[in-house]
Every structure is written in structure tokens, then in C-alpha cells.
Amino acid sequence: MSAPSAPQNWKQWLESESPASRRQAVAGNAWRGLVAIIKNPAALAGLIIVALLLLMALAAPLLAWGQDPLAQDLAQRLKPPSASHWLGTDELGRDIYVRVLYGARVTLTIVVLVSLVVAPLGLAVGTLSGFLGGVIDVVLMRITDIFLAFPRLVLALAFAAALGPGIENAVIAIALTAWPPYARIARAEAATIAQSDFIAAVKLQGASTARILLRHIVPLCLSSVIVRLTLDMAGIILTAAGLGFLGLGAQPPTAEWGAMVSSGREVILDQWWVATMPGIAIFVVSLGFNLLGDGLRDVFDPKSS
């Protein structure tokens, strides 16, 4: 009997119906998800765009050939796109291509920070509410409803105004208005899981509430929260860019896409590229997250598509 080639071996191990270890089961699940996404052209396009964003952010100095995003050259101000300045230059003679590259870092930072605040907050409120029920459920969900009923942008604006402009405060402002849907999702899932037999078994074994929540309920709620997070990324990016555009996000001279569009406002009729180029970057990245999010939702939750 000849041994199967190595790649086939890997595939068999990943696609095995009866995984021998937890590690194999997790890897197999991830593999099946990846295959499903790659088979869906729209989701694949989204995945590629998001991967490119990551690459842009990580390799910005390399891709910019060592140019500084803050380097001013007043002799070269407001030059149209050309061989030496691929996307033209802005009102201070800074290269827009380089600034768009470095802007990816700012956007990615905001997205990651908002996710790090929103997901745990939503999970905490939602799982507590769904698992414990009773008065705690009513009170927490009422608070969630109140926040859900608020106009997001205006409230983020008011928060940003109160806290002062800046990236950190923009993140806080967006996070404060973005968490309620996660609490809703996590609550619905937690309430269902709380009824299942394995939770009863864990309870009988004497597990504490904290242990049940952290080790058994939260991991099972995670996938829907992550799908929702991916779908929300575009909204988060657009809100962040909007705050930046209004002057409440990243402060000059930081290269932030929304602020860059804003700086091109005055010259839009003559030097269109100053506002247009960073706007295209925002559009493409949001589109990427939307496509990927739709794909993830189809993979993890086929019935809601």
C-alpha cells in the first residue's frame, strides 16, 4: 500500500468526520469555513481586500519607498496624479499615495480598538442577561434598548465633542454607540444555550456561574458576534471617517482618510484628486468588509441570508 501524498493527508486530517482531538475539530471547522468562503466569489473578493488593507498597514513604509507621509514640499503642492506622485499631492505638497498607505494604519487601529471594546461589552451584557434572566435581564435589556434607540452619529458627535477630538476619543464615542446590537445577539444565543442539557450537566457538576458563562456560553456566542462585527466594520469605518471629516477624529497632521477628504473640500472643483483618492480608499475598504461579512454570514448562518 503506497502512502498518500502529504497534501492529501492534510486534507483528510482536516476533513475527517470523526476528529480525534479538540485541536483537529477546531482546525477542521476553520478549514471548512475557509473553503466555503473561497468558493463564494464575492466573499473571496472581500477577503482579498481586507488582506490588502492589512498588508498596506503593515508594509506602509516599504510600499511608500521610504517617503514620509508628513513630509511637506510646498513647491509641489496640489499637483495632479503623475509618475512621481501616483495619486497627486495635497495642499501642503504631501504625497497622497503615501498618506493613503499610512491612513490604512489609522483606520485599522480604530477598527481593532472599537472591536476590542464593543465585543466584550456586548458579550458581557448579553450573556449575563440571557443566562441569568429575571430582573437583571429586564434592566440590562431596557438599557440596551435605550442605547439602541439613540441616533448613532449625533451621539458619537456629542461624545467626541465632550471628550475632545482625537483617535482615542473617537474610538470611545463609536464604541459607546455601537455595542447594543451585540448585547441583543449574545442575549438571544445565551438564552437558548442556557436551556440545553449540557449546561444542566455542568451545573450539576458544581460549576460556578462565572465558569459556565466564560467557559461554556461565551465561546458558543462568539461566532455570531464575530459575523456581526465583520458586517459592522464598514459602518464603523464610515462613522470614524465621518468624525475625521468633521475634524473630531484623528488630528492633523496625522494621515487619516476622513480628514484627508475634508482637506480636499476647499479645492474640490479644481483639484478633485485631493478629496477623491482617500474617499475611494474608504469606499473600497468598506466594500471589502461588507462583502466578507455577507460571506461569513452565509457560511455560519445560512438561514438568515
Binding site: T276, F283, S286, N290
Partner: peptide
């Protein structure tokens, strides 16, 4: 719908001004 969910409204406004007004 996808484009609507992905386009920054302030940017669309500026591009609209450039094309249809300018």
C-alpha cells in the same frame, strides 16, 4: 445596496458637486 452601505456620504457629496456642479 452594497454600494450604499460602503460609500461615505460626505465623499459622495463632494464628488457629486465636482461632477454635476463643477
Amino acid at each position: 445596496g452594497l454600494f450604499g452601505y460602503s460609500t461615505p456620504v460626505f465623499w459622495l457629496g463632494l464628488v457629486g458637486l465636482f461632477v454635476f456642479y463643477g
